[in-house]
Design a protein around this nucleic acid. Sequence first.
DNA 1: ATCAGCGCGTTAATGTCAGT
DNA 2: ACTGACATTAACGCGCTGAT
Length: 547
Amino acid sequence: MNAATYKASYKMALLMTKLNRTRTGAYVARKGIPKDVRPDYAARYGMAWEEKFYLEPTVPQHEAKARFGEWLADIETRIARLRAARKQAPQPLTRQNAYALAGRWYSWFIARHEKDIRTPGHWKSLGDTLVWDVIRPHAPEEYENHPQDDPNWDWQSTPEVRDAIRPAIAQEALTADFLIEEGISLTTEAEKLFVDAVAGNLYSAFLRLENIARGNYAPDDTLATFPAYEAVATLPTRLGVKALFEAWAKAVQPATSTFDRWSAVFNAADAHFPDAANIDFAAAKEWMNGLINEERSAHTVATVWRTALKTVFAWGIAEKLVKINPFREVRINVPRRIVERETKAFSREEAKTILAAALTCDDTKSFDERARRWVPWICAYSGARAGEITQLRGIDLQHRGSDYFLRLTPSAGKIKTRKARTIPLHEHLIAQGFLRFVEGASGGPLFYNVGRAGKSAEKAPRQSQAERTRSRLGSWVRSLGITDPELSPNHAWRHTFKAQAARVKMDERYSDAITGHAPATIGRAYTTPTAEDLAEAMKKFPRYTLD
DNA sequence: ATCAGCGCGTTAATGTCAGT
DNA sequence: ACTGACATTAACGCGCTGAT
């Protein structure tokens, strides 16, 4: 499956499950298959990223509802079984246990089909097909020449013939369905042993079903031929990659955004590697290099993906949960990116466009209008992250001596470094009436509506209202014609401010403190500027002019 | 038509460590 | 103490989809 197919399927899988009627009156519903089991689901039931439900318009409503319920329950059961199977470590089988398991399969297979309304001939023809079309074509030449010599067809037990007929046997005998339903996960070798054990009994199963179809319920001799299980030391339960990640998150408590971002990485890894403890370098390397595609650059794989895996596995080693860190050595070649734009700051024209458009917005109407009116101007005069500004509250404006300051603090929301800082307010903002605007908010949030949060009370959304405002502000800036993809609509103010500060020779210590950058050297950390120093430095920062 | 909410690629920024 | 390279962490931004 290529990336595009996957993406398209993925989108479909987000569909809700609800019984609807089409315009012609037919009933339809679609059920997305959860990501974690999707590969298994596709392997078992075909490329089923979503399941479709369809009923003719003639079906009465109450029946449609009942059948929809059954359909849904069936899918849920499959998903639950797949999840249970995923949790199990693949088990090896001894030869004897493979036959013991084949005994369980035999009973399961009979039970599954004995109620089928079939003629005896149906089962007989299945048995004949098995013998003559599946097995017999693999007969060695000597047998073809003298068929009477080998009435027991011993050649069908040779490795070559077994390998050749195994897929057909697995399909006819529904071994995959059986293993899933019983919640058994086998290693590749064990699965071969098991299917081979089934192969020797499939004909008997068809025969038994043929007899039942005739009404012959005589005791089944075949059942007695299966051995009992022999005791084998069980393997320790496996540690999944996802489980390792979750254990790491619980212990390390990373920021929510990191957890969210890395979840995607570990979901993918979990689907690919059955056991976290047993990943070797070659497999890790091959998988990681395969991650690079049109949608996902080598850069992302090298930074985000590799970093995430390496970090968590390194923690796993320290905790003695895994033995090796296969991702530590993996190297991803990242081609140099072509950058057309010489700076990530806004050009004069771009800055003018945004600031002029901001002035046309009315700060008494909606919260979005307020954000458009003020946030670009504040960012232009402070280099703050847009998120830090959209989460501002009235109480964050401070008046000290003759100067005004904004307090950017984690108590308002997200601050990247989780450290509060105080930035001076440029006189041009005051001249534009910013103080009056803040007064109107009476201490509360300036740019988002607090009442709208928590509407869906059960779970807090990943993004805060302030972040939503920032996002919409970004779209608005894009809509003004600032479309260069190499430029961030909000973040570019940070570059713009720093560049302008350098141009007017503001001491880098001050521009770092205002933007919240770490001091350039350890030595400079000893001379942290005070808020008053910053206010003084800010007086050197010229007004933006729009003409 | 608009928007909340989410997945996930991208990028910024700080932390750490070896070499000097 | 400084530097550069790499590691680690966290925010930004875009596109999409169901709901309203």
